[in-house]
Design a protein around this nucleic acid. Structure first.
Lengths: 213, 213
DNA sequence: GCCGGTAACTTACCATGGGTAACTTAGCGG
DNA sequence: CCGCTAAGTTACCCATGGTAAGTTACCGGC
């Protein structure tokens, strides 16, 4: 209800910003930043549009003229994260030498990206049910990318199997990422190593086979 | 608004059931069944408590005396699924001979369980944001279980690594399950095979290493 | 420098649906 | 047959997603 001057964002100097007008693109960026923060902090369901609006320093209808609905706003947040994720991982993979290095570098880049962008990460993997479709699209993007790389490395395998392998890798990375968040002593390098243990080397050689002749 | 006699659930014979009283435990079971169905059909966010109540054939406050809140109702649904999941997978794993067979049988049992209980599955993996904590608890349960088995098979590995491997397996299975749902030509057996390809055998032996001497 | 038009923004409101207080009644034990 | 208890209902509150109508800041033209 009361608008504290202190919480007024960005702006310039001191005044409680008596209704400044801002260009459309810039407002959209501001709103997305605020929305990611608010959704991550309070959870999508418990976050009110008024809270997002207050954080930006505008009123609710502004959000609606830009993003149409609460769900639309969430989708826009997810969409932005998606673009950045593919950039980061593909760049890392293409800098590699050989398939093993590619898997390792891509995985590591993934974990480091999530480290840098923690709020977006929380949004994606903890509060994404309403954006299920959009988050699924991100996974599809990553899966297709990985399946493509695997296809080059193992041309003999059939396409469905390549897809299946890619699903395994994407799912494993997602879980490892959530695990790391809950247990910060696990580094990005360690998580990558565990993924490589299974995906690249396999468990076969690591178990005590004495009772399985 | 209007209550059609046809949609009146279960009951016995014909009458539009002029307020029959039902024992507490039985009502709870009815409500959980209805809730799983409604949440899976329309999505948690779009499902109204009135819709669940109508499906059971009671009014809204009844749901609240049993489960406290909409979220509480969702949590109860998830909780029930959780118990059943551990039963099914542990039973399968303990019937196995040796670690490889254990991993294979447990994984297969998981996929088959989800086939049988499709609505509960949809609830868990597509609409679970509000129950994030509860779904995460299911994963923790499965992860601990798997890490325990791996610890027996590979006593030399340190506990953190075992946890990491278990995360990989749980994540991979989850993704493969969602993938299968979208592409039903993938059988439970195939999904299991793809998981085994990576988790057991590893990719190392499957790629064309000619350019990586 | 002033003026008008447009687009950004606000106020004030509606409607849906989660949640609850107060009352009603089915069904069982005595 | 009576009355007590717990199952169930009606009728309501209010927070929040969403919108219609009015207001004002800025830009370009004269």
């Amino acid at each position: 209800m009361e608008r504290s001057a202190a919480s007024t964002p960005a702006s310039s100097s001191s005044a409680p910003s008596p209704r400044r007008r801002v260009a459309r693109a810039e407002r959209e960026r501001q709103i997305l930043d605020a929305a990611v923060a608010v959704f991550a902090e309070r959870g999508y369901a418990n976050a009110s549009m008024d809270a997002v609006a207050e954080r930006v320093g505008v009123t609710k209808p502004v959000l609606y003229t830009h993003f149409g609905s609460k769900e639309g706003l969430l989708l826009a947040c997810v969409s932005r994260a998606r673009t950045e994720l593919l950039e980061v991982t593909s760049e890392a993979a293409f800098a590699a030498e050989g398939p093993e290095d590619m898997l390792r570098r891509g995985t590591l880049a993934f974990f480091r990206f999530l480290d840098e962008r923690a709020p977006a990460f929380t949004l994606l993997y903890s509060e994404a049910s309403i954006a299920a479709e959009a988050v699924e699209a991100i996974r599809a993007q990553q899966t297709d990318f990985i399946a493509g790389l695997l296809g080059v490395a193992a041309p003999a395998a059939d396409p469905l199997r390549l897809q299946g392998w890619a699903q395994v890798i994407v799912g494993a990375c997602e879980r490892l990422a959530v695990w790391r968040k809950r247990d910060p002593r696990v580094t990005a390098e360690q998580a990558t190593e565990y993924l490589m243990d299974l995906a690249w080397s396999g468990l076969a050689g690591r178990t005590d086979r004495s009772r399985d002749p």
